[in-house]
Simulated assay, not measured.
Amino acid sequence: MIRGTDAATVRDALERAESLPGTFGFAGELDGRLVRDVLGRVPLFVEREGVDGSVLGRDSWAFSPTDLADPVPFPAGAVADGVERTQVWELPEPPVEADHDRALERVDRAIGRAAEAVDATDVAVAFSGGVDSALVAELLDAPLYVAGFPGSHDVAAARTAAEAMGRELEVVTLEPADLERAVPTVARAIGRTNAMDVQIALPLYLVAERVAAEGFDALAVGQGADELFGGYEKVARLDHRVDADTVRGAVREQIHTLPDQLPRDVLALEAAGVEPVAPLLHDDVVDAALRLPTALLVDGEIRKRGLRIVAGEYLPDSVATREKKAVQYGSLVARELDRLARQAGYKRRMDDHVTKYVEALLEDGV
């Protein structure tokens, strides 16, 4: 069973060792082999004793960690046949497109093709008001939803961006009780209890929960744009948080973090009852981003410059140029989860007090 694309496409990608065969990612079992795409866009897990590929029974792998006794992620880009595991696909290193206009045209075409490949009939958009989700929203022409606590940056930014775009916006106003209720469900679904991952997954889950309740089958997100297009401050500054000494090298570092990050987001959305849709993570978009020259990744204080230029053809300048906060901070979920942990007796002087609070909720069977 393969998720994400058809079996013929994966067989062809295997035969050609083609890392970006024109999909939104894939994973599963094909012809007696486990496979997972190069960016790990579809979650795949195996029992710990079978991680090297030596075990390949149907009960030894799953798309969700909750279906296994001792799950570990199956590596992105790998193939296992029950005897050994092989790294078949690697992140490509295509030549840099020196002509800026051609590079931007390639990104524009790729994003357009990705949007056209999405079945937009029953899809909504997780909308933070930033350029990533705004571009997705504009191209899909789908309803906009944002989740956040009263007074949060994300809700305010989403409102002003929606107004500038002439679009209606549904606001999922959060309360502390929403976090208390959702934390155990989210932590179990993503197979993680650390504070950062839970804080990131919570607003995704809560907005997806509303979207599912209102009859949508899928939720489109802007995930991947920061990694692909140079959206992080640490990449622009080349500070201690990156190993590379060039912007392009630092961008590749961030792309390599996607196989660890994306399963968290996918599993959180699936737990809420919707299918994740990430147009900016389509293979064609990845390929176009990898070809961008440095000046279209970071230019002085401007991050994601190339993406912003392309987005400016579709969005008001105030939206295309807007910076945004990370979702856990912009929604105030991180602040409120910290407050709940302290109210429950897990003080900040304790090491990783929010994680301990999450683990306690799970142990109590909440």
Rank of each mutant, 00 (worst) to 15 (best):
A7I: 12
S19V: 02
T66G: 14
R11A: 13
A62M: 01
D67E: 15
P43K: 05
E49P: 12
S64N: 14
T66F: 10
A27L: 04
V42K: 00
L14T: 05
D6H: 09
A7V: 13
F26N: 06
P75C: 08
R48I: 11
T9Q: 06
E47K: 08
S54W: 09
E47I: 04
W61C: 04
R33Y: 07
V46G: 03
A8Y: 13
A7L: 11
S19T: 10
E29N: 12
S60D: 14
D70C: 09
L14Y: 03
T9E: 06
R33G: 13
T5C: 11
D70V: 09
V38R: 00
D59H: 15
R36I: 10
W61V: 04
L39D: 03
S19K: 02
D59W: 15
G25F: 00
R16M: 11
L30D: 00
P73Q: 11
F63K: 08
P73T: 12
L56G: 11
D52Y: 13
A17H: 14
E29Q: 12
D37G: 04
V10M: 03
R41D: 12
S60L: 10
F24E: 09
G25R: 01
G50D: 10
F63Y: 09
L30P: 04
L34S: 09
L14V: 11
S64A: 15
G28H: 00
L14H: 04
D31S: 14
L56I: 06
P75H: 08
R41C: 07
L56P: 05
S60P: 07
G50M: 00
A62R: 02
D31Y: 08
E18S: 14
A62Y: 00
T5F: 01
A27Q: 05
G40C: 08
D70I: 08
A7C: 14
V35Q: 01
F74C: 09
F63Q: 10
T23D: 01
L14K: 04
